[in-house]
Design a protein around this nucleic acid. Sequence first.
DNA 1: CTCTTGACTGAGG
DNA 2: GCCTCAGCCAAGA
Length: 109
Amino acid sequence: MKPETLNFFDKVYEVAKLIPFGRVTSYGAIARYLGAARSARMVGYAMNGSHGKNVPAHRVVNRKGLLTGKHHFDGTNLMQQLLESEGVVVIENQIQNFDNIFWDPLNEL
DNA sequence: CTCTTGACTGAGG
DNA sequence: GCCTCAGCCAAGA
């Protein structure tokens, strides 16, 4: 598997799968780790195809810890349910104690 | 080829 | 801290 054969989307999926249980990261963090610091939006765009790929998209939020992508899940509060199942406290689409559970691939990986 | 659409981010007021 | 604006880049029409 040459890296060149891996699409930007595939790279995003790989990183997303590496997010530890009960931790979260941001689109920008993943983008920077992939060397595409200006492509944070592409990370989110890539998650559109994350369904059925065993990708924990619910652990990826924007830089504020806001669940901006919750509307892309089936249920209205499915994304929040999944996060709370992992011990992550979410109030009004906002992850509480975000700085503490934030997982930066550049620093942790 | 051009134009629109985003699960974003950083800077400025 | 909140709001607004502009830059960013891939995919689809």
